[in-house]
Each structure stands twice: as structure tokens, then as C-alpha cells.
Amino acid sequence: MLDPGSNRELPPIPAKRYFTIGEVSELCDVKPHVLRYWETEFPSLEPAKRRGNRRYYQRHDMLMIRQIRSLLYEQGYTIGGARLRLDGADARGEAALSQQIIKQVRVELEEVLQLLRR
């Protein structure tokens, strides 16, 4: 399970096309070695690899990582159970991903609103 110090809310995902493993690690509150391990366990998580085998994650990868993190750390799934849940591609999995997207958009809109109020 997740340690109690990490029960904070995740920061919003910046409007960028590609993210390095370090940036993803900070934005998703998951260590880089865990991200590399998850790539071997979850076939749908496949970042682009460029020169020197460097990983570049896109927004959909970040949402997938946050969903995996939620299943494993917050909902208590095992790796196998989380894999089945994600590979099942049922409506509830898509609904959870949609909820994450909606939450992300809401946070970004609140930030824009705060900037406009200044």
C-alpha cells in the first residue's frame, strides 16, 4: 500500500506533448524504477523511446499511469488484478479514465480562473 505521506492530491498535468520519466515520476508521485517495472507488467503502457533508449511519455500515458497508481495504491488491487481490470476495457474502466480527464480539466480551468481574477 501507499505510505501515508503520499496521500496528497496529484498536481495537474501541464500542457506539453512529451514528458521525461523524471517529470512523470514527479507528476504521478511514482518512482522512475516503478514506472519502468509497470511498463513490463502493463502492455498498454508503452512510452515512445528515442535516442539512447530515453523514454518520452505522452498525456494518455500519464493518465494511464495515474489510473494504475489509483488501482494499486488507493483501491488495493494486485498487479495481476489491475492488469485484468485495465485489459478488460469495460465501461467502468473507461468511466474512471473519463473521471480523471474531467478532474484534470477542472483543475486547469480553476487555475485559469485564478489568473483571470488577478
Rank of each mutant, 00 (worst) to 15 (best):
P11V: 00
P12L: 00
I13Q: 00
I13S: 00
P14V: 00
P14A: 00
A15L: 15
K16L: 04
K16F: 04
K16H: 09
R17V: 07
Y18C: 02
Y18Q: 09
F19C: 03
I21F: 08
G22W: 15
E23D: 05
E23L: 02
S25Y: 07
E26W: 11
E26Y: 12
E26D: 09
E26G: 10
E26H: 11
L27H: 03
L27K: 02
L27Y: 01
C28L: 14
C28Y: 05
D29G: 03
V30A: 02
K31Q: 02
R36P: 10
R36T: 05
Y37C: 07
Y37D: 08
W38I: 03
E39S: 05
T40G: 08
T40A: 13
T40M: 09
T40C: 10
E41Q: 15
E41K: 15
P43S: 13
P43I: 06
S44D: 11
S44R: 14
S44V: 11
L45K: 13
E46L: 13
P47V: 06
P47T: 10
A48W: 07
R50Q: 06
R51I: 11
R51G: 10
R51F: 14
N53T: 13
N53R: 09
N53A: 12
N53I: 06
N53Y: 14
R54C: 13
R54F: 12
R55T: 15
R55D: 14
Y56M: 03
Y57M: 01
R59P: 15
R59M: 15
H60D: 07
H60M: 07
M62K: 08
M62Q: 09
M62G: 08
M62S: 10
L63D: 10
I65Q: 10
I65V: 09
R66D: 10
Q67M: 13
I68D: 03
R69V: 03
R69H: 03
R69I: 05
